[in-house]
Design a binder for these strands. Structure first.
Lengths: 187, 187
DNA sequence: TTGCCAAGTGGGGTGGTCCTCCATATCGTA
DNA sequence: TACGATATGGAGGACCACCCCACTTGGCAA
């Protein structure tokens, strides 16, 4: 689905419909929503869904693309912040908040490394954006050495995943994130 | 399967076989292994599996029961350790190590709160054992206030879950745990 | 020891999932 | 308008969790 210009108009319209339906259903029921039902809601056959998005991950990437881009933009903004360490932590909190708010985003962010062949775009984008923040924070001595951006994002995603089925998910995620993130600072 | 005495001899034998087969298959393929195949391996019909373990969670509880009990015993031992704070952290690390070594244990530990009606035993056992360690550590001023044992276990489980599909899972889990656990100490 | 019946079993059915083929319908162009 | 490349979706295969019910079996009472 990278070269969207090459798609025929109806095909592109269907792809958009599928992404919209997927977004709605994933918000309702989580990242493991039924692909059949997504197709049903989008008003297309299941074969069409599978041709457009050969793997579930590809669909998730499309659904969350704009949110990931927003997070990347925020990372860019924070590069100009006064305190490099606080900038990184603030960004991680923002990533966590987004992951909690958008069910399934956290899982999507992590699985980038899993299937290197297809997609991985979300994971790559967010990793690239965060890396710059981490490098700057590290240079300022605001994070302890040896920590990678992939580790930090894994931590954030894991927390959002763990609190996904909680009655009081967002608040609990915030608290857990607070604990975990404090370990990032040098002793 | 709580009142095992009330089961007929053959029923109990089948239940044990199912738990053994489940343990093997879960170790191979993770906690979402097919129940049909577990039944097949155990040499019983799928109906038998479902009657003994009405929900997947119930089966997981049975599979991991001994490991959870070992962790609870370890918690008991650590209650006598000199440094209450270090005792708690050491135990959390042990829980993490077990969760990583036994695929699916982490997920099982977390889901206790999800379905209050059935099971929850693993979750309750481990929570109870950890609570004592936490209370002692808190009294010694070794952990910052406001942290609950459920939060700590959620953190540990989340990390083990997140690293489950990693090429270098155990080592990475150890590192992430190190980061997260440092946030437990008071500032 | 024998006979009986509650307890236990598993094949087969239901309804769901993901994914693939291929005959058909549609778009965009010449 | 006519045509061919492109896109579609229903039908179907393989798998899954879970349930029903005709049958078997263990263990107790006589």
């Amino acid at each position: 689905m990278s070269p969207r210009q090459q798609l025929r108009a109806d095909a592109r319209r269907n792809a958009d419909r599928i992404v919209a339906a997927a977004g709605a259903l994933i918000a309702e029921r989580g990242a493991d929503a039924s692909l059949e039902e997504i197709a049903r809601r989008a008003g297309v056959g299941s074969a069409t869904l599978h041709r457009h998005f050969p793997a579930r991950q590809a669909l998730l990437e499309a659904v969350f693309k704009d949110r990931v881009e927003a997070l990347c933009a925020k990372a860019g903004d924070l590069l100009a912040a006064a305190d490099p360490g606080e900038a990184l932590l603030a960004w991680l909190r923002a990533v966590g908040a987004h992951a909690v708010a958008n069910r399934g985003l956290g899982a999507s962010l992590m699985r980038g490394g899993g299937d290197p062949a297809l997609g991985g775009t979300c994971h790559d984008l967010i990793t690239g954006a965060g890396e710059k923040l981490l490098v700057r924070a590290r240079a300022a001595g605001a994070v302890r050495p040896g920590i990678t951006i992939v580790q930090l994002l894994k931590l954030v995603s894991a927390i959002s995943l763990a609190t996904e089925h909680d009655p009081d998910g967002p608040a609990e995620a915030e608290r857990l994130l607070g604990i975990a993130i404090d370990g990032v600072r040098p002793r």
